[in-house]
């Protein structure tokens, strides 16, 4: 059983939940930009949450099924169609042999996820199937898909359709207010900078990708310029550049950096951030650590309930 990529799309890669434990060697975790979408569609199919999925950008790939199989799409809405017939996101579907999945237009968000039962077979590196484009390892031989590439997977049809509940679907928006925990240099901002950070909107420039988002907006400055020796950074770190503009580090970020750290987007809001693209506008809202943790724990609980509920109703 396999899937055939008939058209590659602009950047289609394999991702699981990431590669952890090697940051001290400069190897970042990679993984999906929208972790919640990848986890939810895997659970819907009865997969391990960490099973390998495809992350697609628009224009998205055209995928041919060489056997009957179930699948599930989540994340961005790219108006998916199976042989011309629209299929919804967040609901398990069944494709028949030789049917083709196409994505007509980008409706909302910038990264759509595709999962099949048992996961997309792919090469693992350091215990993860996520694609590391820099080192050319993991996933589809460390590279994005090209026309004619195939993906091995199990042939499996679900008896029952499974829908992902609303509480699990991130609150996608192209002008979200992202919750932020103060960073190490936040206190060094000027009063004007601090206010601008919390009240202004910042636009993502065209120079925004899986490594990071470059923002354009009101300049933000520290009271006194500060040079830092390199220290660890993470997915969601908001760095301040010398020109007063900011960068948000995303899934393929470098493991260390020396720019002042204004803040970090909280884990629960990273999936919303991960769906942003050039031209989208964001604002920041400062929250406490306890609020950030509570939001993440609530999401973990909802995912756990979904997993149990699915097992009870589908039975496998």
């Amino acid at each position: 059983m396999s899937l055939v990529i008939r058209k590659p799309g602009i950047l289609t890669t394999v991702q699981d939940l990431g590669r952890f434990g090697s940051r001290s060697l400069g190897v970042n975790p990679n993984g999906p930009m929208d972790v919640t979408a990848a986890r939810a569609i895997n659970i819907a199919l009865g997969n391990d949450e960490n099973a390998a999925v495809l992350e697609m950008h628009f224009p998205a790939p055209e995928i041919e099924f060489s056997n009957d199989t179930a699948f599930c799409i989540g994340g961005a809405d790219f108006a998916p169609e199976l042989d011309g017939k629209p299929v919804p996101n967040w609901t398990t579907q069944v494709a028949r042999k030789d049917q083709r999945l196409r994505f007509r237009t980008r409706v909302l968000g910038n990264r759509s996820y595709f999962a099949v039962p048992g996961g997309c077979s792919s090469s693992e590196w350091l215990g993860s199937a996520s694609t590391n484009l820099l080192a050319s390892v993991g996933g589809n031989d460390g590279r994005a898909f090209e026309s004619g590439d195939t993906i091995d997977c199990m042939s499996s049809c679900l008896e029952k359709t499974v829908c992902i509940g609303r509480s699990l679907i991130p609150n996608y928006s192209s002008f979200p207010a992202l919750r932020v925990i103060r960073g190490a240099e936040f206190e060094l901002l000027t009063a004007i900078g601090e206010r601008a950070f919390q009240t202004e909107m910042f636009r993502l420039t065209a120079d925004s990708n899986r490594m990071g988002f470059r923002l354009k907006g009101e300049s933000v400055h520290l009271l006194h310029p500060k040079e830092l020796v390199s220290a660890a950074t993470t997915f969601g770190t908001i760095q301040l550049l010398p020109d007063g503009q900011m960068i948000i580090l995303m899934a393929d970020h470098q493991t260390a950096g020396g720019y002042p750290r204004i803040g970090n987007i909280i884990s629960a809001d990273l999936p919303v951030a991960g769906q942003l693209g050039s031209g989208d506008r964001i604002s920041f809202k400062l929250v406490s650590t306890i609020e950030a943790e509570t939001a993440q724990l609530a999401l973990e609980r909802d995912l756990r309930f979904f997993k149990v509920g699915r097992r009870l109703t589908v039975g496998c």
């Binding site: 952890f20 434990g21 090697s22 940051r23 001290s24 020796v229 390199s230 220290a231 660890a232 993470t234 493991t255 260390a256 884990s267 943790e293 993440q296 724990l297 973990e300």
Partner: peptide, 21 residues
């Protein structure tokens, strides 16, 4: 604990919120 990462003059610890809680 997920991983401990040393840098020039700092150490960062990555952890799982639910597991620590």
């Amino acid at each position: 604990l997920i991983e401990a990462v040393p840098a020039y003059a700092s150490t960062t610890f990555f952890y799982s919120i639910p597991k620590v809680k």
